[in-house]
Nucleic acid binder design. Structure first.
Lengths: 218, 218
DNA sequence: GGCTTATTCTGAACGTGTTCAGTTTTGCGC
DNA sequence: GCGCAAAACTGAACACGTTCAGAATAAGCC
């Protein structure tokens, strides 16, 4: 069956690009299924390649390394989560705004606590892969979003600090990151979102209220 | 030269224990030298075993895995640093007490920025090795020390927060951990301690002062 | 269609961390 | 000294992540 001039494809893409896209999707699906089924460490790259129906070497033309496969899977979802978290400005109390935003992340990570642990483990410090770098940019974007949230709260009078929005954003993110780690580290069972958010709220409240007495010195 | 009855050893230890102690020391020295010389990733366990004059398998009776070797080397020093950091109570301003304590850690990590990065990378989440667990206990101990510092500051009137000492200790540690990571992540050159502490101070000051306006609402 | 070039794919081969069955050494009672 | 059980040691073997020289395939051109 040769020279069958393009069935119905109106795409400007050649069949090369389509092949790549399909393979990428198969690799993504295979990796996701196996990572969830067997965990990150117990999944071998050979298995992923086999399940995706590609050669072992091919895997590494789509992802820089095994780590990158993990990010390849979750980056899209994670960006969607972030988009939802920082969607529209709110008039609620600043602390409630923060908790509402972070709630999205807690809910997302609670769905795959095991892999969440790995993502949070692997994100510390620089990595080589393209997707890993995307992950880190995404992280920085969250800080920027938090800074923007601080800026608005300042305007509305809910916040009045003598520091730049960005530095404050970093501080908020640091507390969130530490809390979510502690929340996920607890054990292998399904983590309790509500409980995690209560603890996070207490911690963030310290930052908002401050430690020093209102008028005291020393 | 047989039956030479113990040259001058007054130790109650048999020569077995002494042999073990010596080997452990040789392994420590070899690992430290190579890690510093070539970096963590570029050092192989074979090299370490060879340099230490032991078989490859022997290495893993002294450390659970390669990671554990890293902690095996630095745990002692790190505990000494912590002891110095939290030595005696001070009457200085709370923020100055904190900076003075963390200064010890910054100075220590600045000596081996490359390996420091690895330690901070590897410490996230549970690990198998004995030394790695010791490292985590050490981490928790710092939080406890910070909580104690908070308790004293409360008594002296420098701090007046509606939260438990331990929760506050965790928050302080979270901010410190995030800052020291950012400080070390910047590049491969020697990090500037002074600069790092300035940033840390700004961040911790936010926690102490708080974000909310003193009397305002909303 | 044929030819050439660029892209993509592939699995054998490599390097490395880790294990473990077998060997060597030590401690100890006689 | 002499056996003998326990402890410590060892390197060949294994499993896995990653690389790369060459094979296969698509694209472009006549």
């Amino acid at each position: 069956m040769p020279t069958m001039i393009e069935p119905d494809a109106a795409k400007p893409e050649g069949q090369r690009a389509r092949g790549k896209a399909q393979k990428l999707q198969r690799i993504r699906d295979a990796a996701r299924a196996l990572f969830i089924e067997k965990g990150y460490d117990d999944t071998t790259t050979r298995e992923i390649a086999h399940r995706a129906g590609v050669g072992l070497g091919t895997l590494f033309t789509y992802a820089a390394d095994k780590r990158d496969l993990l990010f390849l899977i979750f980056n899209d979802e994670l960006e969607a989560v972030a988009a939802r978290a920082f969607a529209e400005p709110s008039n609620a109390l600043f602390i409630d705004q923060l908790i509402a935003a972070f709630h999205e992340f807690y809910a997302f990570f609670a769905k795959q606590p095991h892999l969440a642990r790995f993502m949070l483990r692997e994100l510390t410090f620089y990595v080589a892969g393209v997707e890993a770098r995307r992950f880190q940019r995404h992280r920085e974007q969250i800080v920027v979003n938090l800074a923007e949230m601080v800026r608005r709260a300042k305007q509305q009078g809910g916040v009045d600090a003598g520091e730049s929005d960005l530095v404050i954003g970093h501080a908020i993110f640091a507390l969130y990151a530490a809390e979510i780690r502690r929340w996920l580290a607890n054990d292998d069972s399904e983590p309790e979102i509500k409980q995690g958010l209560v603890t996070l709220r207490r911690t963030l409240n310290i930052l908002i209220t401050g430690l020093a007495p209102q008028h005291g010195r020393r």
